[in-house]
Design a protein around this nucleic acid. Sequence first.
DNA 1: AATCCGGGGTA
DNA 2: TACCCAGGATT
Length: 336
Amino acid sequence: MVPMDATTTAATPAAQPSDDEQLADLQQRLLAWYRAHRRDLPWRRTRDPYRVLVSEVMLQQTQVERVIPKYHEFLERFPTIESLAAAPTAEVIRVWSGLGYNRRAVNLQRAAQAVVERHGGVMPRDVDELLALPGIGRYTAGAIACFAYEQDVGFVDTNIRRVLHRLFFGPEVPTPRATAREIQALADRVVPAGEGYDWNQGLMEFGAVHCTARKPLCVVCPLQAHCRAYPAIQTALAEAPATARREEPFTGSSRYYRGRVIEALRELPPGEAIDLAALGPRVRDDFGPEHLAWLREVVAGLERDGLACVAEERAEYDASDPEAGDPARVRVRLPH
DNA sequence: AATCCGGGGTA
DNA sequence: TACCCAGGATT
């Protein structure tokens, strides 16, 4: 006997679809949108875990259009995970030129070395094992599990965060209504079974070209009926005071000079080192002896990140200051 | 939670 | 010039 209670699933009228039916419709609409609008990107043509790894690390904070040529160049030079693991780090850093966040290059090679040494050259499938690799966080681990091994796992990048927040929580401005944990849990829950690859690619594509941060195309959005942010998002974005987050000046910053030093080291002949006194003028026009200690600190920071190697030439013993090394005697090069 | 980490394209 | 952008690691 069917209960009289109208709230039970069995008694729910077709005119009031269940949450499951709503979600299924949303999923099908997004998948349909993606299959009609997806860009032909190089890393969408492969499931090779190594190639997926390379693309995902490059795509961390770097735009698609800038990654595409470097992706081809990098794989031409390092076609296999073994070749990357065995290469001189200096060469990996050189090939990385133009992508920025150079630590990623070092971590990518370290990850390749870990896969070769700890996993016999086979990229792990489990998110937890992937997370243990250098430079691979929750996003990249999930992306590899999904885009290389086609597992139905959820993960969150800036596009997925924005899209899921708008759909399920409402406008993300002026302040987000959901925590990172809630978004991650949601991302895991809404992956359609067996469709994880297209679903996650679709969420990112949708966020990148349709449900954008500034000018979402709500008027022609196929997900209108499912969106907690529609149509309030347009008003919210219009009223949001242009986030007065002043960026600190880049020229003259530590980041700027780190970039200049790496740029100078890349130009050295392979294996060659340069002393600070010669490096200085290549990094800043006004360089003088008073900048030696400062440059030594910049180089020390790069060394901590595995981006530079420092060798101090044997100094004369100075009885008055036995601790101090002479910055002028320090030589620097890219790591082997 | 805040901060650091590059660089290039574009309005 | 100012602003944007497929995160991770450290503290």
